[in-house]
Design a protein around this nucleic acid. Structure first.
Lengths: 120, 120
DNA sequence: ATAAACTGTGGAGCTTACTCTACAGTCAAG
DNA sequence: CTTGACTGTAGAGTAAGCTCCACAGTTTAT
């Protein structure tokens, strides 16, 4: 598929997609005879993962490193395992912190009379 | 306490702390007779919360809005409840996404022989 | 009493992550 | 066959979030 459709499927602008290509967060797409970029559905999935990870506070560099780790086997198994374990722990820590912040918010809500009516 | 001690307790630089003051993420501290800033322990806690929230992908603006919501009662109860519920749901979504990413990583780890030995 | 450390201000500069501009080729519809 | 939507490239500009600099007053230790 071409750029336009990818922008519609991902909510990203063409500039952002091109930027991610330049920064090697996604593989360079194949090209049509006219030079137009042709994207695979896999790339669309990758772009959506990038968006998710960004919302969770990962930088583009971290995302790049992590996806390369998950996708390739050019590291020793030990090195890769170590990095993945590190990331896994980071994520656990984030989940814990989010849970704490949510508790704060929910506590504030509990103190308000409308609480029980609005919480879905 | 003075700036130096706050930098040690929070891991933030004096510049960052001053920046947060300028951006009104923390209240302007009281001043000593010589003009030096005197911070309360509450502000130190606030700074640590800011750091946490930043790690979780919240922007400074979102953090500012959220802390003002939690700290003040200048909104109608309904408006405040609505915003807090919205934030609470956003956080739930983040937790879900983090859990998904962690599952990916842990799955990759499970496929590796060293997995059982290294996972704490 | 003087050097070293700390604090203040204002403003410039930097990095990340886009976002936009300018200009040109391509393609589909009327 | 031309008009408008789409695509391409290169490079400049922008916003957020710091980070650093220059210069000046204060305080502490020796």
């Amino acid at each position: 598929m071409k750029t336009k459709q990818v922008t519609q499927l991902t909510g990203l602008t063409k500039d952002t997609i091109r930027f991610y290509e330049k920064e090697q967060l996604i593989p360079p797409p194949s090209r049509d005879v006219n030079g137009y970029r042709i994207y695979s559905e896999k790339t669309v999935e990758q772009l959506n993962m990038i968006t998710m990870a960004k919302n969770l506070g990962f930088t583009l560099k971290e995302i790049k490193d992590l996806t390369q780790l998950l996708g390739k086997n050019n590291l020793t198994q030990q090195a890769m395992a170590a990095k993945l374990i590190e990331k896994s722990k980071e994520i656990d820590a984030k989940i814990t912190e989010l849970t704490n912040i949510k508790a704060l918010i929910d506590h504030a809500l509990k103190g308000m009379c409308e609480y029980k009516d609005k919480l879905s």
